[in-house]
Design a protein around this nucleic acid. Sequence first.
DNA 1: CCTTGTGAAGCTGTTCACAGCC
DNA 2: GGCTGTGAACAGCTTCACAAGG
Lengths: 228, 228
Amino acid sequence: MTILRSPRLDDGTARGIPDATVARLPIYLRALNALTERGVSTCSSNELAENAGVNPAKLRKDLSYLGSYGTRGVGYDVEYLRYQIAREIGQTQDWDVVIVGVGNLGSALSAYQGFSTRGIRVAALVDADPRRIGTTISGQTVSSLDDLGAIVSERNISIGIIATPGTAAQEVADRLVAAGITSILNFAPALVQVPDGVDVRKVDLSIELQILAYHEQRKAGTDKVVNA
Amino acid sequence: MTILRSPRLDDGTARGIPDATVARLPIYLRALNALTERGVSTCSSNELAENAGVNPAKLRKDLSYLGSYGTRGVGYDVEYLRYQIAREIGQTQDWDVVIVGVGNLGSALSAYQGFSTRGIRVAALVDADPRRIGTTISGQTVSSLDDLGAIVSERNISIGIIATPGTAAQEVADRLVAAGITSILNFAPALVQVPDGVDVRKVDLSIELQILAYHEQRKAGTDKVVNA
DNA sequence: CCTTGTGAAGCTGTTCACAGCC
DNA sequence: GGCTGTGAACAGCTTCACAAGG
């Protein structure tokens, strides 16, 4: 039997949620947390969609992949829906991550406040530079890249963050994979190749700005035409 | 006349390039730079696609939105194509950006090596905290958020980066817009509302990890079934 | 009456496969 | 012969509009 990327499997459980939906579930979770803090206990798809910055129909379709957690004519129970989404995206447990590279970016990430409330725990910092190994950053001792395997298996870490220069990215990725890591978030401006079964997501700081620059250029160019 | 989002306008110039393509052009640029450094002066779509990590057909279609810059039976001239893409995405000039918030993340961004070679120049740093104002970070003096208007118009800045906590994000966005900024890169974990004509892109560090965590959870759950 | 959940339509993006051209 | 450029088929995502149901 081949497993297809279909919304539902034959056992009836909602599975194979579309990528675009998965990427928005954390946003909904954040919006629901904000509503809880404001003391709101029930909300409509309109309200929640507004708080999340999406179209209400899209929100309802997204939620429909998880199950039927709303009540027609009423809306959604904030706490109940929050729990269901949290469970779906694995937010009922904490996820330990290892950061490779404690330069400016790696250090900033290790101190980032936003992780802990989202179920992310920075469990280890490693670097290849001997001058950094042994130093303390955000209360954690920096270990050697050579100890990666031991650290990953010891602490049961499955997610790694690459925060090195681009030139080191592939080598670091190889080491992460060898250490047993199966999900990588890559901040280095370089393409990394990994075997099947390992997920890589890439965040490229320059590219985001370059995209904005493209639109700026277009605005500047069309001003003459549009504001005629 | 209404301006539609069509690949070509009637004047024949290639305009209205699809968003997905725009997002990849900087990647192609990077791949071309890498080829130049290796002394490669001509390449096929296969070669370039491999370096960029995309399907060759997609690469060719992307490039076709810019014009016909290849030679059938031969391939692309690396330097020529590099220039054409650079021109298209506004990379022939440098873009000045202002970073708002010089906490860990803002400081890391101000020191980020990857910007300068991609036509991005961090021209100013501002913060609301009086203890930070006047300090020097990466060779730049931190100014007051209150001076944003003067700084932006004086240095002709059109792109702003929000690197503050989520609670300050909307206020900062409002100030950026008031100062004349028309493109914003938002690192704060919060939705910001801006008027029409202002572009916002969002980079959410937690969400990227949450997406990876979701896939990790799925891998863990299906292991039992798949490895039966 | 109100709001969810969802088929169906429409749109955007990707991939195929081949005509066109060097 | 070989590689580009592109129409056409395909796949995925978004939006609409309404039936279903509290």
